[in-house]
């Protein structure tokens, strides 16, 4: 999708670990207010892409233009400050801290106490289960609750762009539905989201646009519903 003035424009991104190159020549764009989805087999490099965008690993080549500023190779905390929040794979909540403290960490860059309180109210209205567990140690939450906390924590930053890495991974069907409902609600509110999902069907139904990643390169791209109808996608990613 070539879209001038998209919120996020990735050009020729190369990422890797040590001597191995995992992602090469990646072009991708996320327009303001859109949900863009990244799907691909295990090991295709989806998590690596998100880690590269949020600065957890260095870009070896290429540009990450966010609001037309190149964020490639900026430290992760600077990228967070620029307005990108990343709910990483495996949730990565602070298990020894309370739910409330996890939310406070999400609002680490919040400009004022009043603003933090406002965001906290919004997060708890979105995930009422968390409200009952504010004083509990986050590590004691169920997997589904931890995922809600991870998303709520990312939203506490009130980000311009939200990166979600497999929010439905390892969850019971009931929780998967709840997470996807929450993502749909975020979309309705006009949030901009880059979503990585194994659950390709649900993700493509929500996505305005989607990219299929195959061994570090984009193999197919197009509007979500269009990809849903493509037989090669159905074969490879939608369980036949």
């Amino acid at each position: 999708m070539s879209m001038n003035g998209a919120l996020l424009e990735v050009r020729g991104l190369e990422l890797g670990y040590g001597r191995s190159t995992v992602v090469e020549g990646l072009d991708l764009s996320v327009p303001e207010g859109a949900i863009v989805c990244l799907i691909g087999a295990n090991g295709a490099g989806k998590t690596t892409v998100l880690r590269g965008l949020s600065g957890l690993i260095r870009a070896r080549r290429g540009a990450v233009l966010f609001e037309r500023t190149d964020l490639a190779n900026k430290p992760a905390h600077r990228i967070a400050r620029a307005g990108i929040a990343h709910a990483p794979e495996g949730r990565q909540i602070f298990g020894e801290m309370t739910v409330s403290e996890n939310l406070a960490m999400g609002a680490y860059l919040s400009p004022s106490k009043a603003e933090t309180a406002r965001r906290r109210e919004g997060a708890l209205a979105r995930f009422p289960r968390l409200a009952e567990r504010m004083r509990q140690r986050a590590g004691l939450l169920s997997g589904g609750e931890q995922q809600m906390l991870a998303i709520a924590r990312a939203l506490m930053a009130d980000p311009k762009l939200l990166l979600l890495d497999e929010p439905s991974m390892g969850l019971a069907p009931l929780f998967v539905d709840e997470i996807f409902r929450a993502i749909a609600a975020l979309k309705a509110e006009g949030r901009t989201i880059l979503l990585v999902e194994q659950n390709a069907h649900a993700a493509l139904e929500l996505a305005d646009y989607a990219y299929v990643l195959e061994t570090g390169k984009v193999s197919i791209e197009g509007p979500g519903r269009e990809l849903l109808a493509r037989p090669e996608i159905a074969d490879a990613y939608l369980g036949g």
């Binding site: 992760a76 967070a80 909540i93 960490m105 999400g106 924590r153």
Partner: peptide, 13 residues
Amino acid sequence: AENSDASELMGVD
């Protein structure tokens, strides 16, 4: 102390 990557993602230097 718990998770330095996650802390960076929250904007912690």
